[in-house]
């Protein structure tokens, strides 16, 4: 696997759309009150991300730059409508719970952001991987926040954390912890690389010694 594919695959974690890129904050705080909402909204967003990334990547050389944004919005809105119809028909309980937020996926910054920053510049396979990776990153972030907020409100009876203000506090704390861990891992990996570079003898030095 080449470096670009690997980076794209891990993009959902290393460049997590919620905790690192800070995109899609509105639905994250509004609908991460419990785990099931998080899974539902996360998977709906994943589907839209995957389909729109593939579609936009396929058409990246055809869509003129001047009309790329309206074209992206039309494509994204189509897949959001498909998800909306699916949830309304097969998952009525989920529809009641997060239904109002499904149409808002159209204006979720993650979708348009990935279309503009990635799918419009890369091939279909990489764009599909990016869609899945970012979608899973978003879903995991929603599940993590949902689990914490559900635990605090239902087990610890701290119902404040179901509110938007409580959600914002949890969001900030988890974001800080997440970035601390990611930075620590990156620093460790960087130190290891520097150390290895220092230890490895240079080719000219080896030749000279011979």
């Amino acid at each position: 696997m080449d470096k670009k594919t690997k980076d794209t695959l891990l993009g959902g974690i290393i460049n997590n759309p919620v905790f690192v890129l800070v995109l899609g904050t509105c639905p994250t705080i509004a609908k991460s009150t419990n785990i099931s909402n998080g899974i539902g909204l996360g998977l709906a967003t994943l589907f839209v991300l995957l389909c729109s990334n593939v579609f936009i990547s396929l058409l990246r050389k055809t869509i003129p730059g001047e009309v790329r944004l309206p074209a992206y919005i039309v494509i994204i809105a189509t897949f959001v409508t498909v998800v909306q119809l699916f949830v309304a028909k097969f998952l009525p309980d989920l529809d009641k719970s997060i239904g109002a937020f499904i149409p808002l996926i159209v204006v979720n910054c993650i979708i348009l952001g990935r279309a503009e920053a990635f799918a419009a510049k890369n091939n279909v396979l990489l764009s599909a991987i990016d869609g899945v990776s970012m979608g899973l990153g978003f879903t995991l972030a929603l599940i993590l926040l949902g689990a914490i907020r559900q635990f605090l409100s239902e087990v610890c009876k701290l119902t404040f954390f179901v509110s938007s203000a409580g959600g914002f506090m949890i969001f900030g704390l988890v974001m800080a912890a997440f970035n601390y861990v990611i930075t620590a891992i990156n620093n460790k990996a960087f130190s290891k690389k520097v150390l290895l570079d220092m230890k490895a003898p240079k080719a000219e030095d080896v030749k000279e010694a011979e």
Binding site: L59, T62, I63, P64, E66, V67, P70, A71, V74, I75, A77, T78, T81, V82, L85, F86, A88, K89
Partner: peptide, 30 residues
Amino acid sequence: KNVIKSIAVLSVIALVCVAILSLANVFLKK
């Protein structure tokens, strides 16, 4: 030329999207 190309591309995209939605409506209509 650019304007005509933009209109043509947007129209084709809109038509494809309408086709996808029509198909989805057949199977997913509540």
